[in-house]
Nucleic acid binder design. Sequence first.
DNA 1: CACCTGATTGCCT
DNA 2: GGCAATCAGGTGA
Length: 198
Amino acid sequence: MIEDAGSGRDPGEFLSGDVVHVARGLLGCRLITSFDGMTTEVVLDEVEAYGGVDDPASHAYRGRTKRNESMFREPGTLYVYRSYGVHWCANVVTGPEGDPSAVLLRGGVPIVGVEAMEHRRGRTDHLTDGPGKLCSALGITGEHDGTSIIDGPVRLVDGALPFGATIDVEPRVGITKATERTWRFVARSADGSSLTGI
DNA sequence: CACCTGATTGCCT
DNA sequence: GGCAATCAGGTGA
């Protein structure tokens, strides 16, 4: 499956609307953190869409709770939760406000602050290829839950996949409900070329 | 209040 | 490929 990711969009604009559409658009965008004296940045290459009350696999399916509170906020809000009691996972809320939907950020390609990521991860391989690893490498934790990805400590910057890149569409992983929904999107470069365009 | 399960990862065999 | 780690939300008594 081949399609463009678009670019030059207004954050408030491309983060709103159908969560599946937003999820696709997030591929190629850059996720940046700058704190603790370290700046780290990745190009997103794997995401999953999660709906609200109509999506059994979504945290928002059973209504508003203390944990999923930020999922009910405005588009562009960061929703961070603890997974398996051990890891942190980050989502970008796509709203609209009061109508929860979010995109789980599952993986990226490191482009800035690789040394910092290696330090935080305690290893030099598999730095950001998984939702928990991505948060670990970028230093994202529960304290960032509810912050804005437009002007908060964790920022999303619009970007596009390089020409010729493809988007694989697959079922979401690690869930047991609504597994038939192919709401997982993975960006792949044309032929071994860089996904970052760098 | 006790029990179960999970949008995962990393280490062990 | 198997499995432990580790804890909060959700469920049911």
